[in-house]
């Protein structure tokens, strides 16, 4: 293996890690902190991707000169749209289903089918082409390794994941809202008694998780397809990362993404893609057999 390939492989691991982090952060909040198994999480990512697509169409038509910045606007819009949708979803559906995990699964799975069909009706059954902005096309070749290519789109995703993780951390641990969220998820009754409006916190937290899914979906338009079933491609990996890391711990989610990302890119280099995937799943099963609450489950009294 040449040093170039080695460097690119290491970068792939890092890239996959950040992709998984972006995918899983939203779910870690919705599923991990709130305990809602949202099967439509993938479709929310697809919604983010489609919002980006719609933004690109809008820019192309109204202000083609500003095309280079459409992507940044697209990401923000994707967050806004999925946040709003998540808020409405929590108020209209999810809040009636707390403490009924099986019903939640069924309801959100139904929602995912409805959303898929809605995408099909609005945007057509075919994948749509989301243009990659010019400044993120191509690759960066460092002077000391001229034969190695690091795709700019992946570098961007690495930065975005860092930014989003930092943002989530600040929000949860450095603001009053974060304090309320943590209080409610730890002990709802006591928080209510202490004067926190738990319903509003629930809606906000859920919407935040959905908004993060939107950001993820939006940035993945650079790497993968945008179509009605796009969400299905993401949702399994997302759940694996969250469950493997330990459902209640955000840090666990990030570490689990790091482990799975590195392992997967290494395995994919050593064997065929299908075998790599199967091996990862096998490892996850074995790990969960010995640590049923995930690798980094926080020790709490039940």
């Amino acid at each position: 293996m040449t040093p170039e390939i080695l460097a690119m492989q290491a970068f792939n691991g890092l890239s996959l890690f950040t992709i998984l982090v972006l995918m899983a952060l939203g779910l870690a909040i919705v599923f991990g902190l709130m305990g809602v198994i949202n099967m439509a999480h993938g479709e929310l990512m697809a919604m983010g991707a489609y919002t980006t697509y719609a933004t690109s169409l809008l820019f192309e038509k109204l202000m083609p000169g500003l095309m280079p910045v459409y992507f940044l606007v697209g990401i923000l819009l994707a967050f806004a749209v999925t946040f709003a949708f998540g808020f409405a979803l929590e108020r209209g559906l999810i809040r009636f289903l707390y403490h009924r995990p099986l019903d939640t699964m069924l309801a959100t799975w139904g929602l995912s089918l409805i959303l898929q069909q809605a995408f099909r009706h609005i945007f057509g059954p075919k994948e749509v082409g989301v243009p990659t902005v010019s400044w993120l096309q191509g690759a960066w070749s460092p002077a000391f390794l001229p034969d190695a290519q690091f795709p700019l789109s992946r570098i961007f995703i690495v930065m975005l994941a860092l930014l989003v993780s930092f943002g989530v951390y600040m929000l949860l641990f450095r603001t009053r809202w974060g304090l309320k969220i943590r209080a409610v998820t730890q002990n709802r009754a006591m928080s209510g008694a202490a004067g926190i409006n738990t319903e509003r916190v629930d809606a906000f937290t859920f919407a935040l998780g959905c908004g993060l899914a939107g950001i993820a979906g939006s940035s993945f338009t650079m790497l993968a397809s945008t179509g009605p079933v796009t969400g299905q491609q993401y949702v399994v990996d997302t759940f694996i990362v969250v469950v493997f890391g330990g459902v209640e711990s955000l840090l666990g989610t990030i570490l689990s993404a790091a482990i799975i990302g590195q392992l997967q890119s290494t395995f994919e280099y050593l064997m065929t893609g299908s075998m790599a995937k199967a091996s990862i799943l096998l490892l996850v099963i074995v790990a969960l057999y010995f640590r049923p609450n995930g690798l980094f489950a926080s020790k709490v009294r039940r």
Partner: peptide, 20 residues
């Protein structure tokens, strides 16, 4: 010779294998 599950969206390592 390599195979990926239907719907796979991650080809970075495969691309490195091709380059090698």
């Amino acid at each position: 010779e390599s195979y990926y599950p239907l719907g796979s969206i991650e080809f970075a390592s495969e691309i490195n294998k091709i380059k090698a």
